[in-house]
Design a protein around this nucleic acid. Structure first.
Lengths: 188, 188
DNA sequence: ATGCTTTTTTGATAAATGTCAATTGAGATT
DNA sequence: AATCTCAATTGACATTTATCAAAAAAGCAT
């Protein structure tokens, strides 16, 4: 399982056996039951997470309501950006929506080795630039697309999502109320 | 002037004389008159830009209207993220609002050296993570704050901006129409 | 299957914002 | 000073979306 994960990292940026071994000391796997948290509100995000198996929701609280920031499907990386970099309490909460297997890659390890290990430094570049592209895409989708378009796109990208996620989570993700989403669906 | 810029880079991530010299070959300065473009629509973004002097607006077109993505003040870095990484035509346009002095740092150089030079790789990590934090902050400000709040914050962060930028640019930046912004201002 | 709970839809109304048009204001020019 | 131009405000109205409440539908357990 970790081999597969290391291969994934290696695809992002080539890693020698030595570099892989360095990283291995800072990687661990955790099984997390559906509905449990990976990162609670107020925690500091000290890892880059990877959904090896399962399905994850990232959300934040606003006026008492919880608003979905995004969904992370299998084989993708995620972390709480502001909390990770600034080492501040996260205002993002990360929960699993299914029984999941999450791989933790520690910031401590990455920070330690990137100063001396070129491969690990370049791995970080790839991780961060991937995250940057993702963040930018999400911003553009909010700016350019209507809620209806974004709903359609979400269904295309993640066909099974309607079975996994209650409608009100989709609605907050799209930035509209559940009622409005329901009416959008009725019209299609 | 370039010395100052190199010091700036050095603050982000320490650079030896050798690394600085490597980078120097891939840095140039351009004076750009107010209203002229740094990056046109359809260009591919091949540099990370730095506003040494002046003031810059980044915008995109949507339904024929131009929408401000953000303003870059002096001593800050910026680039067209999707275009830079994917080497696709930029849908962001970058223009100066004042006579400006822009420092160009070429992607070609960065990509060449990050594979072999640890300092330059770490510089890139700092540049990208800074950009990631910025991108995230902007997203959160859109999600968490009302247009009114965002207007106030903008004035706090950039007190002189009302003298530099016509109201309709501020409005599109805030995601509202000029008329709505005018009404917000009237109520304060 | 029956009832119980949760999710989703529907309806009526209110609030916010957009649109279009007209007016006002401020600077620059003659 | 009068005029011209561009920027900003105001008004009237339309549209969109939120809100609150209730009904319908879908899942689940007994």
């Amino acid at each position: 399982m970790l081999t597969e994960y290391l291969n994934r990292l290696n695809e992002l940026s080539p890693l020698s056996i030595e570099s892989k071994n360095l990283l291995l000391e800072h990687i661990f796997v955790k099984k997390i039951n559906a509905g449990d948290y990976i990162l609670k509100q107020g925690d500091v995000c000290k890892h880059i997470y990877f959904v090896n198996k399962g399905f994850v929701r990232i959300f934040y609280y606003k006026n008492g309501k919880n608003i979905t920031e995004w969904f992370s499907k299998e084989k993708s990386f995620f972390f709480s950006i502001a909390s990770y970099f600034n080492e501040t309490e996260s205002n993002l909460v990360i929960e699993t929506l299914e029984d999941s297997e999450i791989i933790f890659l520690s910031k401590a390890g990455l920070e330690k080795f990137r100063k001396t290990n070129l491969e690990i430094a370049n791995l970080l570049i790839e991780l961060f630039s991937g995250s940057l592209i993702f963040s930018q895409q999400r911003m553009e989708s909010i700016q350019f697309e209507t809620a209806k378009d974004r709903y359609q796109n979400l269904l295309n990208e993640q066909p099974g999502i309607l079975n996994k996620v209650p409608l009100h989570h989709l609605a907050t993700f799209l930035g509209i109320t559940q009622e409005t989403l329901s009416r959008i669906r009725a019209k299609v």
